[in-house]
Design a protein around this nucleic acid. Structure first.
Lengths: 265, 265
DNA sequence: ACAAAAGTGTTCTATGTACACCCATGT
DNA sequence: ACATGGGTGTACATAGAACACTTTTGT
């Protein structure tokens, strides 16, 4: 839990800021024929993680109602409205359509573009990871999708299996190359959890949480038990001491000793 | 919902060999109209790093001979031949065209797709980072580019400046959003260098190198001096002890005490 | 009184960093 | 002999993991 945070300063581009520097350039832009290059479709696909009531890491999968891969399970996604929105905006829009939530933590994962990954036509998919507290999810079915459900993830050397009360899905039941996308998302999440603030985005309430709650999120992601005293020590050193988290003048009552509440800034 | 389960388990689909499972699906694929979605152009852009003779981190920039951003400097790139090649293959192809080298370390960096980043038409750019020993570079000009040159990078809180014997380029002289791409590439490289094997790809000869040579690469990337005894200790522990690097029965003669040679596997 | 969960403290080991010093070569 | 770069050893601070123990609540 040390903080090697890598922050990128990125400037934002928009249409209005580009100024033609000459008449020659204006002419060029008018004559430019966009159709002369082969254009693949571009989609955004989103790996949505959440924690269930038993603090297991869950993922949202959609049963495809249409071809290709009809009946297979996929992560939600959709076409980017090129030129109208940024990639992240496209991901946020899809997320909103699928789960009815806004203001979600979204992080670009990787871009997949192997030929033949979609049997219809060349499709390049920009994959995003979303971390969402379950309370905020309001799952809906998409346009050409039947059925959206949350599944508990089991991922070890044997492979991935997704289960819930009624269904068991193996990684071979996933559409397209979504197996690779999900595997990469889990791996990245596990690697990032120790030095990035990702875990806070899975808290029910960032403004009032206990150290135990945060520990359970870490345990779910890393899929192993964590020693609470050591976790507390690192938490206080890395977050409270630096001011990224402040201790509230409030406790959470329940079984056992009341727990201090903290607020993530 | 249990009735669905049986059909999932029988699948053996993968990317490369998609087999239509039914006549219904065949029909669907034939009728599918790819043109109904707005398709952005997709390019790959490559941040090429190398070390110069004085062990400074260098980057390859191209002076744009055509509009847009004529006269501005850009990183090399080009359109993806959708459906014919993977994104990494496209990057490798562009790299080969530009610098005449193959078998280069290439790593996907990030995908940029803000509206208006290219004034002509919506363009989504998948950025790659390449690490190349200078000896292998054979720099050429591209199709609509004038001039390709290596520049020493200076990057601190003040911003980025690129210099060589004849030119000084500020980050404002860069085309498109290449400023953001390059900044991200440098930041990522710096963050990765401590726990990934990236540095070895900048060695003149991976099969015969000294600890000092490797240290100089790390210094160039991190832009600070490293204590040699400590670097050696970590190198022996992390690479030699684990077998990722083997000590050769050979020394490099020169000024001072001869240096042991190592081989990266 | 007891269970349950929060919270404190100790110990051991590994790592990062600073730095003093010795070693083998060319000139 | 001395400059030059390679290589060894010591010392201290901090981080991570294991674990014994205490505190405060509800029942």
């Amino acid at each position: 839990m040390n903080n090697k945070k890598a922050s990128y300063t990125s400037s934002t581009y928009n249409n209005s800021s580009y100024i033609c520097s000459s008449e020659e350039e204006k002419e060029f832009l008018e004559k430019y024929d966009a159709s002369k290059y082969t254009r693949p479709s571009v989609t955004v696909d989103i790996v949505i993680f959440t924690l269930d009531e038993e603090d297991n890491l869950n993922i949202l999968l959609i049963n495809r109602g249409g071809y290709p891969y009809k009946g297979f399970w996929a992560i939600p996604g959709g076409f980017v409205e090129a030129g109208k929105e940024s990639l992240e905006q496209a991901a946020a829009r899809e997320l909103k359509e699928e789960t009815n939530i806004s203001n979600v933590y979204l992080k670009q994962l990787y871009t997949f573009g192997n030929p033949g990954r979609d049997p219809r036509t060349p499709v390049i998919s920009v994959a995003y990871t979303a971390l969402v507290p379950k309370e905020m999810l309001d799952i809906k079915a998409g346009d050409d999708a039947d059925d959206a459900q949350l599944f508990k993830i089991k991922y070890d050397i044997e492979g991935m299996i997704f289960t819930n009360e009624s269904l068991t899905i193996t990684e071979d039941n996933l559409a397209f190359d979504h197996r690779d996308i999900i595997k990469m998302a889990i791996t990245r999440l596990r690697n990032r959890i120790d030095y990035e603030d990702d875990a806070f985005n899975l808290l029910k309430n960032k403004n009032e949480f206990t150290i135990s709650e945060l520990k359970k999120i870490h345990e779910a992601i890393k899929n192993k038990n964590i020693d609470l005293p050591n976790f507390r020590k690192a938490f206080l050193r890395d977050y409270v001491e630096s001011g990224k988290v402040i201790e509230l003048d409030k406790n959470l009552e329940g079984k056992g000793k009341p727990a201090k509440l903290y607020k993530y800034i």
